[in-house]
């Protein structure tokens, strides 16, 4: 390790304290049930829980397994149950936890594949179930797109918050309904239902309402709000689900119905230029 100057930790920042990592271990080939294992991890200022795990893998136990990729809260791979809350390991600094012992378990409410790796398949299947894509009555509008859809910044504001979902699955780990119920669609999929239904380019409202208006849909959300408490991207799934419930009611009562999506704009030049807006620069490639 020391040979690579980039990986040299000998000149690293001063070690502030040493914490105990209490990590869940489960090897599907050997163990019948999980066990806990302790490691001592030195902590310089700013070290994240994920970096602590990397330290263990490099220095203490190479067999420790988890899933991570971008280490900056974008890919959503490193969701773990850290000291009583589902969190992203890469966004949680050890010193912020204010504890001498850090307990790390895989996200609850998912099957454990190995050590800290949860099986996120149910999450992704439920996400796919609600058709997370623009649905248009005329399919050719999507397949052979000839121009952009017309959408104002104000219309974008109504759903943009919910587009930041990174499918890390923390919300399902926090949800009390999911704790017992494998069939419940869950905060992630329902929040995405709202996101696409609210998109003015989409025409799939009725279609998605039919998909989720079952015993496993919105009626199983009781606004415990835990999903929103743990969401690392501010998606606020509980908020989206309550708004979805309102939209479902208004749709049913014929008060607010989105019958048609916005039209496709013609060529870029078809739009009317506002006064004082200069021409686009010449193409460079």
């Amino acid at each position: 390790m020391g040979e690579n100057p980039n990986m040299d930790t000998s000149q690293a920042e001063e070690i502030v304290k040493t914490v105990t990592y209490n990590v869940l271990r489960y090897d599907p080939d050997k163990d019948s049930k999980p066990r806990m294992q302790r490691f001592q991890v030195p902590v310089p200022k700013g070290r994240t829980v994920l970096e602590g795990l990397i330290y263990i893998k490099e220095n203490l136990d190479g067999s420790l397994t988890w899933r991570s990729s971008c280490r900056m809260g974008v890919c959503g791979s490193c969701g773990m149950f850290i000291n009583g809350l589902p969190r992203l390991a890469c966004q949680t600094q050890i010193l912020d936890l204010n504890a001498d012992e850090i307990q790390i378990k895989p996200l609850p409410n998912y099957d454990i594949l190995k050590d800290l790796v949860p099986d996120l398949k149910p999450l992704l299947e439920k996400h796919k179930y609600i058709h997370p894509n623009l649905v248009r009555r005329e399919g050719k509008e999507i397949d052979g797109l000839t121009g952009e859809f017309f959408q104002t910044p104000k219309e974008l504001e109504n759903y943009i918050q919910f587009t930041f979902c990174i499918k890390c699955g923390l919300c399902l780990a926090a949800c009390p309904t999911v704790a017992t119920d494998a069939n419940y669609l869950g905060p992630q999929a329902l929040a995405q239902t709202f996101r696409y239904n609210t998109d003015t380019r989409d025409e799939g409202n009725q279609f998605r309402f039919d998909l989720i208006d079952t015993a496993d849909g919105t009626t199983k959300c009781h606004f415990a709000g835990a999903c929103s408490d743990v969401c690392p991207k501010g998606v606020d799934p509980a908020f989206a689900i309550q708004l979805l419930k309102r939209d479902m009611l208004l749709h049913k009562l014929h008060i607010k119905r989105k019958e048609k999506g916005v039209p496709i704009l013609g060529k870029v030049t078809d739009g009317k230029r506002m006064k004082g807006v200069p021409d686009a620069p010449e193409k460079t490639v």
Binding site: T177, T180, D181, A182, N183, Y184, A215, T219, K220
Partner: peptide, 14 residues
């Protein structure tokens, strides 16, 4: 019924 249905029951039992 809502509470019982959250117990992951089989369709027939529901």
């Amino acid at each position: 019924r809502t509470i019982l249905f959250e117990l992951n029951l089989k369709k027939g039992l529901q």
